[in-house]
């Protein structure tokens, strides 16, 4: 029954046109000469030049990158621990509460997460800035990491780990030499997810940033509220380009790794 009928072809064409046309238009018009974004006045890269000369955007981009690197790394460590607790720790007092706290932030409206964290930071008298954004981002993205890693841990064959223990590994060595390499793809995709979530976040950062720190989405926000601007088009194009390159090369790498593994397995069988 796998056939491309006219219906399926139309659905796919229209669907993907809907998903991609807005971004394609944005990219095309980022090379527009005119200040008036909806009127085409010839090809130009001047908005990219203006963007790179804009100190405020550059420093916001730097803050965003710092926050994303720190929070996603921290979230990956905590989230992996969280996944181990969910899948491996068995019963312990407060387990239901724990799994609730892992799953709840996934569906929590950002305005509520942001508001509650801000009230906490003010309550304990913590000065708001890069540090508080890192704390906030770590908290919600560690839950995403936990979910990704735990789905991998569930399908993990524990006898491999037991074999390592029987062969004289300490539990820590068994984790490092056997478990970690096997769950590594999930840990890496968890890190990437946490990194993207942090780069992307506007609402939670706005609540927890305070006056001293501005992230790139906050900067974009304050500019797009006033309407469409050619500089934001240029910035969007750069961001879309980076993501597209990242996602496409990641998928090519995993595809090649899968092919290599297949070839090795075939070679092993023949030998």
């Amino acid at each position: 029954m796998r056939r491309l009928t006219w219906f399926n072809t139309t659905a796919l064409t229209l669907g993907f046109a809907f998903l991609y046309l807005p971004m394609i238009i944005l990219i095309i018009y980022s090379f527009n000469e005119s200040k008036l974004v909806t009127v085409w006045a010839g090809f130009s890269t001047k908005w990219y030049g203006e963007l790179l000369g804009n100190e405020a955007f550059l420093s916001a981009a730097w803050v965003t990158l710092k926050v994303a690197v720190f929070s996603s790394t921290l979230a990956t460590i905590l989230g992996t621990l969280g996944a181990l607790v969910l899948v491996r720790a068995g019963r312990f007092p407060g387990r239901t509460l724990f799994s609730g706290m892992i799953y709840a932030p996934l569906v929590m409206p950002e305005v509520i997460t942001g508001l509650s964290l801000l009230l906490l930071f003010i309550g304990i008298g913590l000065d708001r800035g890069v540090f508080t954004i890192v704390l906030a981002h770590t908290t919600f993205s560690m839950c995403f990491v936990s979910v990704v890693v735990s789905s991998r841990l569930v399908s993990f064959d524990r006898s491999l780990e037991e074999a390592a223990l029987d062969l004289g590994c300490s539990p820590m060595e068994a984790f490092r030499l056997v478990t970690l390499p096997i769950i590594a793809p999930a840990v890496i995709s968890g890190w990437l997810l946490a990194f993207t979530l942090s780069l992307d976040d506007l609402v939670i950062a706005s609540f927890t940033a305070g006056p001293s720190a501005t992230t790139l989405p906050m900067k974009i926000w304050s500019s797009v509220r006033l309407g469409v601007s050619p500089e934001i088009n240029a910035l969007s194009t750069l961001m879309i380009g980076i993501v597209a390159i990242g996602v496409i090369s990641a998928s090519l790498i995993t595809k090649r790794a899968a092919l290599r593994q297949e070839a090795e397995e075939r070679a092993a069988v023949q030998a």
């Binding site: 944005l26 992307d200 469409v228 969007s236 961001m239 993501v243 996602v247």
Partner: peptide, 22 residues
């Protein structure tokens, strides 16, 4: 599959913004 997931990785704010010009 990749074409469906790709927009998910790009900034939410930018995807919403892209409709303002349209």
């Amino acid at each position: 599959m990749m074409l469906v997931i790709l927009p998910f990785w790009t900034s939410f704010l930018i995807r919403v913004y892209s409709w303002m010009g349209i």
